[in-house]
Each structure stands twice: as C-alpha cells, then as structure tokens.
C-alpha cells in the first residue's frame, strides 16, 4: 500500500513495528513504532504519558516526510 500511494505521487511515511517487513516490501521512509497491537501507544503508561509518546512518533514521522531520501531510510532515534 505504501508503494502504490507513493507511486501516485505522494510521499508516504510508514509507521510500523516490524521494520524488516517494511524494508522488504519497499517503503522508502520508515519510522519504528512501539508494538504490533499498539504501534502509536503504550497502555502501560498513563494516558498523558502515552499521548506524549504518540506525539513523539508523529513528530518523527512528519520530520521524515520533510527529509529528502534517495533510498529506503529507517528514521531511528
């Protein structure tokens, strides 16, 4: 899905936990997330803390979208 949307002419950032799959499939901008059943959250934290974590991942995703890449790139910390 990432590839087809990118092919349509839009930069896509793939937020996912199992980044090796994303690399195999062919996403260009990849941001690692927390866990498979809750990629952008952490139920072990307080709701406030959890939202901070989510915000950090979204900010990193937006940063990735503003970064020129010439191939597959995983945006780690």
């Amino acid at each position: 899905m990432v590839k087809e949307i990118e092919r349509a002419g839009l930069p896509v950032v793939h937020d996912c936990t199992v980044t090796p799959i994303s690399l195999t499939v062919g996403a260009n901008r990849i941001v690692p997330t927390i866990a498979i059943p809750h990629p952008l959250g952490d139920p072990a934290q307080t709701p406030e803390e959890e939202k901070k974590i989510r915000r950090a991942i979204v900010e990193k995703s937006l940063q990735a979208l503003q970064t020129e890449v010439d191939g597959q790139t995983v945006f780690k910390d």
Binding site: M1, V2, I5, A8, G9, L10, P11, V12, V13, H14, D15, C16, T17, S22, T33, I36, P37, P39, L40, V58, S61, L62, L65
Partner: peptide
C-alpha cells in the same frame, strides 16, 4: 488523495 490535494501520507501498520 492526490486529486484532493493531499501533500503527504502517514500510513500506520500493526
């Protein structure tokens, strides 16, 4: 999305 003027996409996977 392209036709509707979207500039970029965040795609999340589990």
């Amino acid at each position: 999305l392209k036709a509707d003027g979207v500039d970029a996409v965040i795609l999340t996977s589990t």
